[in-house]
Write a protein that binds this DNA or RNA. Structure first.
Length: 279
DNA sequence: ATGTCGACTCCGAGTCGA
């Protein structure tokens, strides 16, 4: 089973490119982020004609997460327990609206999340505090789920908006004092690893960035960032047989500013496979 | 280069978000 995560930066602006990628790279399940539309606006036909079913979350032109899968989707969950909300101007009631940033499905018994972690905007901005609280709540919910489902493979996939290592940006001096590289953000990312999840792409030795800003010729200069990840439980990591960062998807006509990250799972492997076949 | 892109409003340039 081949699964991928991709911040598509508007599914309406790019659905042809996305479906072409799914077919060309033989993807079974795609987690999308920044679809930037409501379910009613989602270009379903392009995916469905290619044999993919959809699970879509979106409230307006911002954020939005989705799954496209040509294997049956089960156990859909929108958001997670304790997920904080956000508004630039908090309403009188104090109830902050929940954003479309987290969607979980199960496919072939594998629990998959499509996550669009808040950007944070600037250190000290309310959005930065929101980012850290959002990650903390995700960690708590993931931990609780893993305790309840200790054997089920799980992966957190998406745009984490964090560059965990200095090598994940092209020039650390550019990022001093900015989001994505601050100690609290990196600690929040590390906390998932400390809980026993692993970066299954980095662990296979895959190098390179997953995002290049549209501005300032960042892609031709290869001035990018590695901020899109697949964090898997140990039972998920055991299934992984290949991983790639699809750098070529940043080139050509009307690319997203992010590229897909692909992980291939061997669903046949089991402890029984060493036994002789008896007919 | 203050270097781009996408969605909104509501018809076209300004605004927000990244």
């Amino acid at each position: 089973m081949r699964i991928a995560t991709w911040n598509v930066n508007s599914v309406r602006a790019r659905f042809g490119r996305i479906v072409d990628f799914l077919e060309r790279r033989d993807i079974d399940v795609l987690a999308m982020q920044e679809t930037k539309c409501t379910p009613a606006q989602f270009p379903r036909e392009a995916f469905e004609e290619a044999g993919y079913e959809l699970e879509v979350v979106g409230t307006n032109q911002w954020n939005g997460v989705a799954f496209a899968s040509r294997l049956p989707i089960e156990e859909v969950q929108v958001g997670f327990d304790g997920m904080p909300g956000y508004a630039n101007t908090p309403p009188e009631s104090g109830e902050l609206p929940l954003e479309a940033r987290a969607l979980a499905v199960s496919v072939e018994g594998v629990r998959l999340w499509s996550l669009y972690v808040p950007n944070g905007r600037e250190l000290g901005h309310p959005h930065y505090d929101y980012k850290l609280r959002w990650l903390d709540a995700l960690r708590a919910d993931t931990d609780a789920w893993r305790r309840a489902n200790p054997d089920q493979p799980l992966a957190l996939m998406g745009d984490f908006n964090i560059a965990p290592l200095d090598i994940d940006v092209w020039d650390m001096s550019v990022f001093e004092g900015h989001t994505h590289v601050s100690a609290p953000e990196r600690a929040a990312f590390q906390a998932f690893l400390d809980d026993g999840l692993t970066d299954v792409v980095r662990d296979r030795g895959v190098e390179g960035y997953t995002y290049w800003d549209y501005k300032a010729g960042r892609f031709p200069k290869n001035e990018g960032m590695r901020i899109d990840f697949v964090l898997g439980s140990s039972s998920f990591a055991d299934l992984v047989v290949d991983a790639t960062i699809e750098r070529d998807e940043r080139a050509g006509d009307a690319p997203s500013d992010h590229v897909p990250v692909v992980v291939e799972l061997d669903m046949e492997t089991s402890i029984d496979d060493d036994r002789p076949m008896i007919f």
